[in-house]
């Protein structure tokens, strides 16, 4: 292996892994069990997994079509559209949370009608958690899938078209299987981002055990009063997400050396 690649790679790995080692070394192993068996921990973990998975599903349903529009359509203004779609990547998540309030809050542009007509408010509900996570995580999926679509050989689609398939059939039967590894990689990235989401969630959904308190929120609050407990919670989140990612990698991405995760 050439040194110009190996040395920076090693430095990079150390940079990414050392903070995790720090968590492991400083973890209060002796009272790990009492910390883990607090009812709030299981509650927060369950909520995190459920809401991140729902956010990923919503992102798949909405994000794959966005990626297709960006990669395949001849719509004018696509570069503007791409910039708009990736705005949540650069927006501080807390600002994203405030922005969601301004649209979907009970005083918001749309949320006001929900409140006045149906007496329904989105903030401070699990729905709000999923919305906040989707807002922040979907761009990761869109970018991954768009990249995969651009890398895929468009001649297969052309061939399908010459054989009489319409564009929807072509998309379902040719394009989607072709970019499946990219979609899976994007979904994993999206799920991981949703699982770690903090700023938009605590702003838009608030923080209440059982309904809106996800693991990152529980970790942050524990840090205020019980730093050791916060480390334990971080480790739980870390292990669950690592285990999920490793399992999914074997199942979805196979051994073909597909990108990411």
């Amino acid at each position: 292996m050439p040194a110009p690649l190996l040395v920076p790679a090693l430095v990079g790995v150390a940079f990414l892994v050392l903070p995790l080692l720090g968590l492991l070394i400083r973890a209060p192993w002796s009272d790990l069990w009492p910390q883990l068996t607090q009812p709030q921990v299981g509650q927060a973990l369950r909520l995190s997994l459920v809401s991140a998975t729902l956010a990923t599903l919503v992102s798949l349903v909405l994000g794959v079509p966005i990626a297709w529009v960006l990669a395949r359509s001849t719509l004018p203004g696509r570069s503007v559209l791409r910039a708009l779609v990736t705005v949540p990547l650069v927006l501080p998540p807390v600002v994203g949370g405030v922005a969601l309030f301004l649209v979907l809050g009970r005083q918001g542009i749309l949320g006001r009608y929900l409140y006045e007509e149906f007496d329904y408010t989105i903030p401070f509900t699990t729905t709000a958690v999923v919305i906040a996570e989707t807002f922040v995580a979907m761009p990761f999926l869109v970018i991954s899938v768009e990249g995969a679509l651009r890398a895929a050989d468009a001649r297969f689609e052309d061939a399908a078209a010459t054989l009489g398939a319409n564009r929807w059939t072509t998309f379902r039967r040719v394009t989607l299987p072709l970019v499946a590894p990219g979609v899976a990689a994007g979904a994993v990235l999206c799920w991981a981002r949703a699982l770690g989401e903090f700023g938009a969630t605590i702003t838009f959904a608030g923080n209440f055990p059982g309904t809106t308190q996800t693991m990152p929120l529980a970790v942050y609050l524990a840090l205020q009063s019980n730093p050791e407990g916060a480390i334990v919670l971080s480790l739980v989140l870390l292990f669950v997400s690592l285990a999920t990612l490793l399992l999914l990698r074997d199942r979805w991405l196979g051994r073909s050396g597909a990108p990411l995760a």
Binding site: V98, F101, L102, G105, R106, Q107, P123, F124, I202, T203, A205, G206, N207, F208, P209, T212, Q213, L217, Y220, L221, Q224
Partner: peptide, 19 residues
């Protein structure tokens, strides 16, 4: 309460937004 805020500023922001 409907939410347990992470600090007093966050609580105040939700009042200012009318939420």
């Amino acid at each position: 309460p409907d939410t347990l805020e992470e600090d007093v500023r966050a609580a105040l922001t939700k009042v200012e937004l009318g939420e």
